[in-house]
Design a protein around this nucleic acid. Structure first.
Length: 579
DNA sequence: GCCGTTTTCGGCCCGACTGTTTTCAGTCG
């Protein structure tokens, strides 16, 4: 049987990421390790497929990929294997890499655990810790052993990351509590929360103060805190009862811009920024810029930090080391879409299917948000579990929408449907019904484990139907629960561009689908995005902020997003057929 | 291992906190 060859950029990147960690555990020189890490990151987010670049001999155009790594990519694509990687694997079993996931355990400690005790998995380490075998290792002691054990128990309790929407209210509560401390000024969430990442590993909060120690002391003694992990003069890390980790950093006000920039990250963005500073003979840290003569210039605002490096200020959502530094230098950063640009919501449910509120309640909520329209998109009949509607049901709904529009004008309720793309690829309602909707949103909820060809085919059939305006939550991922469906996204994007079909950025906190990277790909191909709250009750319209944040992460400008159109413009666009 | 409008060799990102230390390495963000 043919061995499955890694071909996607993500799969190829994984090899180099593993190599970096294996070399790190082996004690290889840090810069070489970093080179592999950077290459992996670069490959994972490169807009073109490695397989194409290889054919054209253009692999070395990728930043961070030189002769040696290009050769390894070539070998991998040609033979499906990589000699160098296999040699490393023979020295260190794959499972050992998982030990790096333990809090407080880095490459040096992993090396000890493996080489001295032969531990190759987290359960191995747990057992050894219980048997007090770890405390005798050189450089470790009873405290380290206890800490590792606690880390393992923490991993058992919480699996991984927290949704942005979960962490945000917690962060706001802590910020409010910190403001009670008189010494604290300028308290604000930073980190992945400020960058509006879909999920956050921890909550970062920063403050400025003339008396940092007081603020840190106040922080670690908050009632929400269940455990203090570290507690210094300017920095502390705690765990809450919920298992969430919260970091606080406090500096004087003069450093505030430097601090905010530093603590917002991302790590990669900051590393790249420090690299730029180096080129100018400067050393950048949370305190400011250190010049070659040792003097330090601190920045009170982020604009000063970026300005010092001849860069425009960069919106936090873009700080992922994905080309934003180059754009900031050239003055070509996007004018990102904002909440004020949003004139309507493309994806909402009512009591007609599985929503909790009436169409009128949904409309009133939309009006309260300052929208000029919402699209009601109840499920079609094929999705029985969600109370999907038949053509007759929709006819009743249209009558109600029409009456409401008479009363609520100039606000408009648009008649829509979340049309099931059935497992056999057929659409769930006939064309003579579809043509009567203002907006048709098509999506898949069934047969999600179909193979890539079948799934891609279902999307393409839907997009080729002249009445389908939008594909909703295109990958079907559920954060922390389910990977997206197997689909050839490149083919989907091309078909969307070719047929003038929009792709949704679904704003549900556990979907955020498309994500920022894919949204950016879609925009790059000329696809229009449609933001939908997918609200199932009136309050649910509020999640739109997460959709906007995600679109911003995809570098979306107002012109890339259909929600910025007025109702008239939208109807004119839809009536003129698909592009 | 990568990279170059100072460099094809010699650089390459910074600092706080902790633990096991007796001057520092490891980890983390």
């Amino acid at each position: 049987m043919m061995e499955q060859r890694p071909t996607s950029n993500a799969e190829i990147a994984q090899f180099f990421s593993n190599i970096a960690e294996l070399l790190d555990i082996k004690g290889e020189e840090w810069y070489r390790v970093r080179a592999y890490r950077r290459a992996a990151e670069s490959i994972a987010h490169y807009p073109e497929e490695m397989i194409i670049l290889r054919e054209r001999g253009r692999l070395e155009e990728i930043p961070g990929v030189g002769k040696a790594i290009a050769g390894k990519i070539d070998e991998l694509l040609r033979t499906g294997r990589m000699e160098f990687y296999q040699r490393l694997q023979s020295e260190i079993p794959d499972g050992v890499l998982s030990l790096l996931g333990l809090p407080g355990v880095g490459p040096r400690t992993v090396s000890l655990l493996y080489n001295e005790l032969g531990l190759v998995s987290i359960p191995d380490v747990e057992l050894a810790a219980h048997q007090h075998k770890l405390r005798d290792l050189k450089g470790l002691g009873a405290k380290s052993e206890e800490r590792i054990l606690q880390g393992i128990q923490m991993l058992h309790r919480i699996s991984g990351r927290h949704l942005l929407a979960t962490a945000l209210p917690v962060a706001e509560e802590i910020v409010a509590a910190l403001k009670d401390c008189q010494a604290a000024q300028g308290v604000t969430p930073a980190g992945s929360l400020r960058r509006c990442a879909p999920t956050v590993g921890d909550i970062d909060i920063l403050a400025s103060s003339a008396r940092p120690q007081e603020v840190v002391d106040h922080f670690v003694s908050l009632p929400q805190v269940s455990e203090v992990s570290s507690h210094g003069d300017t920095k502390a890390t705690v765990y809450l009862d919920s298992g969430l980790q919260v970091d606080l950093l406090v500096l004087e006000e003069a450093h505030y811009g430097s601090l905010l920039q530093h603590f917002t990250g991302s790590k990669d963005h900051n590393a790249a920024l420090r690299g730029l500073a180096r080129q100018q003979g400067l050393s950048l840290s949370e305190y400011g810029f250190q010049h070659e003569d040792g003097s330090v210039t601190s920045c009170a605002t982020e604009e000063e930090v970026y300005g010092t490096l001849n860069l425009a200020w960069i919106p936090p959502e873009l700080r992922e080391a994905r080309g934003e530094l180059e754009a900031a230098r050239e003055g070509s950063l996007p004018q990102l879409i904002t909440a004020e640009d949003i004139k309507g919501d493309f994806h909402t449910h009512s009591v007609y299917s599985d929503g909790a509120d009436t169409i009128e309640e949904m409309a009133l909520a939309g009006m309260a948000r300052g929208y000029s329209y919402i699209v009601i998109t109840d499920h079609s009949q094929g999705l029985g579990v969600a109370g999907g509607l038949s053509a007759d049901d929709f006819a009743r709904q249209w009558a109600e929408i029409s009456a409401l529009n008479g009363r609520l004008a100039p606000f408009r309720i648009l008649s829509g449907v979340e049309l099931e793309i059935r497992t056999d690829g057929a659409l769930d309602l006939p064309d003579d019904v579809l043509v009567q909707f203002d907006v048709v949103v098509a999506s898949v909820h069934l047969g999600l484990s179909q193979d890539e060809d079948k799934m891609t085919g279902r999307f393409i059939v839907a997009m080729r139907n002249p009445h389908v305006d939008i594909i909703a939550h295109p990958t079907g991922r559920l954060l922390g629960q389910r990977e997206g469906v197997a689909v050839d996204f490149q083919a989907v994007v091309e078909e969307a561009a070719g047929t003038g079909t929009m792709l949704e950025v679904n704003a549900q906190p556990n979907r955020l689908d498309l994500d920022g990277d894919l949204a950016r790909k879609a925009i790059g191909a000329g696809v229009m995005l449609a933001l939908g709250s997918d609200a199932h009750h009136a309050e649910g319209l509020g999640v739109m902020r997460f959709g906007i944040a995600t679109a911003r992460g995809g570098w979306a400008e107002p012109a890339n997003v259909a929600n910025t159109l007025s109702c008239e413009e939208l109807m004119a666009t839809l009536k003129s057929g698909k592009a």
